[in-house]
Design a protein around this nucleic acid. Structure first.
Length: 368
RNA sequence: CCGAGGGUGGCAGAGCGGUCAAUUGCAGUAGACUGUAAAUCUACCGAGCUUGUCUCUACGGGGGUUCGAAUCCCUCCCCUCGGA
């Protein structure tokens, strides 16, 4: 049983060169410059105000020459609102055996081609500046959940070191830019309280426009998320945005917002949508906009269905009768199931939109 | 009618004397997915139950050889391609 308490929900404004973001908010993920399968117009209609792109991916494809010619990522992809770019730090974790980390940076070999690329803290900032990002993330090292303390300590040390280099390079380079982007630091330390604390203090010393909590939901048991927030959030300045990277399930967002987090991103709504899992509002979903305090179990907020199941074969009801996304207004569960069964791209497209709508609406209620 | 090649699990298609309840793909069923190597991946997929180095029934039908046959022989049925 969790408790929602509106008292703790923060409402701050993050001013960027492409507009102001009200928090709490959720960023749909457009790693490669596209929210997979969706148009910019569709994403806008769903209520997204900021999306996330990735340095590593966009650097390799389409490449900075293309972005430069297109006059920046916003222009290239046709998105006029803010973009936060991740630094490539997560790929230090997710690409595992395809990368090698040193104090100077990371060597990546592209999984398919084997081509090698070197990403340093300075290089990452440089790329993000060239992309025209509104919120730039420092390069960090993100060890897998439940790594040994020794490994995590080393990652924290390196992350602080890189953060310093990023800040220096950013300060020097962004001076010439008219409206300078924001620069966010990333706190590491995995599940270890002392390392989290140390990481936070180091970053605060350097000073950033916002603070992200990284290295969460990377394989450690769920229960640690709450603890990590308990350690870290109280250390963070009240007037600066707080971003919990890569999280998460709806109840994790609700919980984290109540712990003082402002910004989120996660692949869950889009990836699971593409894979045929749909989020459906339950009764207490609507309490989020109405009641100031209540206890809940996750299933009282939402449930999920695998649309491919036989039980939906002849189910002519909408996926979620309380949803006003295009899917739910237009098609039945049976039809969506049919789309998935025949492998038509419309299925993943509609499901992605539906799930994003769920996430954005949920977080919108908490912002209200 | 003659000649040649075939008939394998829902489909396609391996296997060509034992390690075959039978490779693989598709379809089917269920599950996973948390800063996207992900329109991906995993499991199951003849039947039964006491879920097991278990029991049945199975590679067109029938018969035979063999300790043992999807695999070899005979025969019948069917398909494809040539020739009358």
């Amino acid at each position: 049983m969790e408790t929602f308490n509106k008292i703790n929900v923060r409402h701050i404004k993050i001013a960027t060169k492409h507009g102001t973001i009200n928090t709490p908010t959720f960023m749909p993920i457009a790693t490669q410059g596209v929210v997979k399968g969706l148009t910019i117009s569709e994403i806008g209609k769903l209520g997204a105000n900021i999306i996330l792109g990735n340095t590593y991916h966009l650097w390799l494809k389409p490449g900075l020459d293309v972005i430069k010619k297109a006059k920046g990522l916003h222009n290239f992809m046709g998105w006029r609102k803010p973009i936060l770019t991740d630094s490539g730090g997560f790929q230090v974790f997710s690409l595992g055996k395809f990368q090698k980390t040193t104090d100077e940076g990371v060597w990546f070999s592209e999984p398919n081609s084997g081509k090698k690329h070197f990403l340093s803290p300075e290089k990452s900032i440089d790329i993000q500046l060239k992309l025209g990002s509104d919120i730039i993330m420092v390069l960090d090292e993100c060890p897998p959940g439940l790594s040994s303390k020794k490994v995590v300590r080393e990652a924290v040390r390196r992350t602080s070191d890189w953060a310093k280099k990023c800040k220096e390079y950013f300060t020097k380079t962004a001076r010439n830019i008219k409206k300078r982007p924001l620069l966010f630091g990333i706190i590491q330390g995995n599940v270890y309280k002392d390392l989290r604390t140390e990481s936070a203090k180091e970053l605060l010393k350097i000073g950033f426009d916002g603070y992200a909590i990284g290295g969460v939901a990377v394989g450690e048991p769920r229960k640690y998320l709450k603890k990590v927030l308990e350690y870290v959030v109280p250390l963070l300045p009240r007037n600066k945005p707080r971003y919990l990277m890569g999280v998460g399930r709806p109840e994790e967002l609700i919980d984290s917002i109540c712990s003082g987090i402002d910004l989120f991103d996660c692949v869950i709504p889009t990836r699971e949508g593409r894979h045929g899992k749909l989020f459906i509002r339950s009764k207490k979903f609507f309490w989020l906009g109405k009641k100031n305090k209540f206890a809940y179990k996750p299933e009282e907020i939402y449930k999920t269905i695998n649309i491919g199941r036989v039980e939906f074969k002849k189910d002519l009801r909408p996926v979620d009768p309380h949803c006003d996304c295009y899917l739910c207004k237009t098609y039945s569960r049976a039809y969506l199931r049919h789309l998935f069964k025949i492998g038509d791209i419309l299925g993943p497209r509609l499901a992605s939109q539906h799930n994003l709508k769920f996430y954005l609406e949920m977080i919108g209620k908490m912002r209200a």
